[in-house]
Simulated assay, not measured.
Amino acid sequence: MFKRILISIGSALAMHAVQAAEPVILVFGDSLSAGYGIAAEQAWPKLLEKELARQGKKFRVVNASVSGETTAGGLTRFPASLKQHQPQWVILALGANDGLRGLPVAGIKNNLATMISQAQKSGAKVHLIGMQMPPNYGASYTQQFAAVYPALAKQYQLSLSPFLLAPIIDQDRYFQADQLHPTASAQALLLKYIQQQFKP
């Protein structure tokens, strides 16, 4: 019995050592990255890990995305996630819920900028994923909102995917019944789009 326990502990420690040796990609977003309405294994962050492995790149992808998250909420969680996972890369994909609530663009930009700065100070590289708002939010707001992401990418010298939903936005079949969240079949398209700019 005692021998089995020692073997079990040894296996767990070995597994932890292997995981610790693999560089981490931390995906930090909202429901669009959390895989809302589909299985976690089907969401694009998990597909990213599988695709990198297929390419012979040994990364561990940690999906710390939370459905309903705003940039303010993300900012409160972010330092602990950085400390816990010590990522080599951070994929930051927040802002959609702020925009849907019509929150001030300046606050959204400041929150994202703070997280980017924190990530870079920790030694992580950042890939930023942008979002856009539908036209019914008014031309002024939608333009200001969309401009946040390229401005931050330029300021902090980040790689950028300008609009996560770009490859599917005009195809209803790739959205769930709420017409907000991508289906499982859309995830590979989202990943392909992200990988055009994100090359770890």
Rank of each mutant, 00 (worst) to 15 (best):
G73F: 04
G99K: 01
H85F: 15
A119H: 10
V66G: 04
Q84A: 15
R77D: 06
S122Y: 06
A64M: 14
V105W: 00
T71H: 05
I108T: 11
M133I: 06
R101F: 02
P87H: 12
S65F: 06
A106M: 08
A72I: 02
N136R: 14
K109I: 00
L103S: 08
L100I: 13
V126H: 03
K83A: 15
S81T: 13
P87E: 05
V90S: 11
H127D: 14
L94A: 11
G123Q: 11
W89I: 11
R77P: 03
K125C: 01
I129A: 02
A106L: 08
L128K: 06
V66D: 01
V126Y: 01
R101W: 02
T114S: 06
A80S: 15
T70H: 11
A113M: 01
W89T: 09
V105Y: 00
N110E: 15
T70E: 07
Q86F: 02
Q84C: 10
V105F: 00
N136V: 10
K83S: 13
T76K: 15
G68F: 03
K109P: 00
A139R: 14
I129E: 00
T114P: 00
L103G: 04
I91P: 01
G102A: 06
A80C: 12
P104I: 07
L100R: 05
A124C: 09
P87W: 10
G123P: 01
G138Y: 03
Q84S: 14
A119P: 02
Q88L: 13
I116L: 00
L94Q: 04
T114V: 06
A96E: 03
E69G: 05
G74V: 09
Q88W: 06
A119L: 10
L94P: 03
T76V: 14
I108A: 00
G138H: 07
G73W: 03
P135T: 09
K121Q: 13
L112K: 11
K83V: 10
H85K: 15
A113E: 01
G107F: 01
P79W: 07
V126G: 10
A64L: 10
K125L: 04
N136S: 14
R77K: 11
I116M: 01
K121A: 13
W89K: 08
S81C: 13
P104Q: 09
L92Q: 04
I129D: 00
H85I: 15
L128V: 06
P135M: 08
S81V: 10
W89P: 00
P79L: 13
M115C: 03
G74L: 05
M115T: 04
Q86L: 08
G99I: 02
T71A: 13
G107L: 09
A96W: 03
G102V: 06
Q132R: 15
